[in-house]
Amino acid sequence: MSASMLSAADRRRPWLLLAPSLITLFVLMIVPIGIMTIFSFYEFVTAGVEKEVFTTANWHEFLTDSFYHMFLWKTIRVAGITAILCALMGYPAAYCIAMTNYKHKWLLLLLLIVPFWISFTIRTFSWIHILGEQGVINVLLLKLGLVNEPIRMLYTEGSVIMGMIHFLLPYMILNVYVAIEGIDRNLISAARTLGCTAWQAFREVVLPLSLPGLMAGLLLCFVLAAGSYVTPQILGSTRDALFGNIIFDTIMDELNWPMGSTLSLVLLIFLGAVAAVYSRYMGLSRVLKGLSG
């Protein structure tokens, strides 16, 4: 009897330990999503006023209005470019940190985290002083006589992507670093012993084994970039807006909460689908299968 009571307590323990997380998730995620879902079926009356009647008008508008489709596609494109550039820039950096023999490796990792000590908004604003017409680059180019008039770099799609890379690169490097750091060095030594060149050892051993980290970094960068609205707001022109900015304007400018909720759910569903596809096709299982084969 005592054993069965203990068993019941044991069964409850994981739930008790998980309870704070589950309650937090429920209150801060499930409930708001539920409220947004309800709002998406309300009727917009005028700015800041909605009627609590069931209507599918907002969903119909999203599905039939090419304006929203265009911005969803644009968001996918910009987020995709950002994630790929983060991977191209982040992988070599992560590889170097992981493989270095420098005894103070912690210092390199600390440097990666240092940007997080400064406010994200301030870091984004700092690009105005670098890319602006009176910014460091233009002033330097003008003084060196390389250009006759300032080059337009700010308030473009390029400056938005650059701002997002600035914000997302540490996430990519950390993900890849953890993956490379976890690789058994004996495998690389074995590959070299069996005749692989350094490049072949990297291509055949390090790269496949670090793919989970790279993919996780790509997913993280893509999702965060696709949901971004502050960076395009600060570094882009209105034409460089992403889907997040459309949501922001619908809610904050038009005060159209039903439509804003609908668009928020669309982005949530889309990013959720991307994560699901990653998990199904690009996740660890594929890499592990490759290894076992």
Binding site: T46, T238, I246, E254, N256
Partner: peptide, 16 residues
């Protein structure tokens, strides 16, 4: 005209 014009402006400002 506030609602209709605000919506139209939001679109035009973004290239619409």
């Amino acid at each position: 005209n506030l609602d209709a014009w605000t919506k139209q402006w939001d679109r035009i400002s973004k290239g619409g």
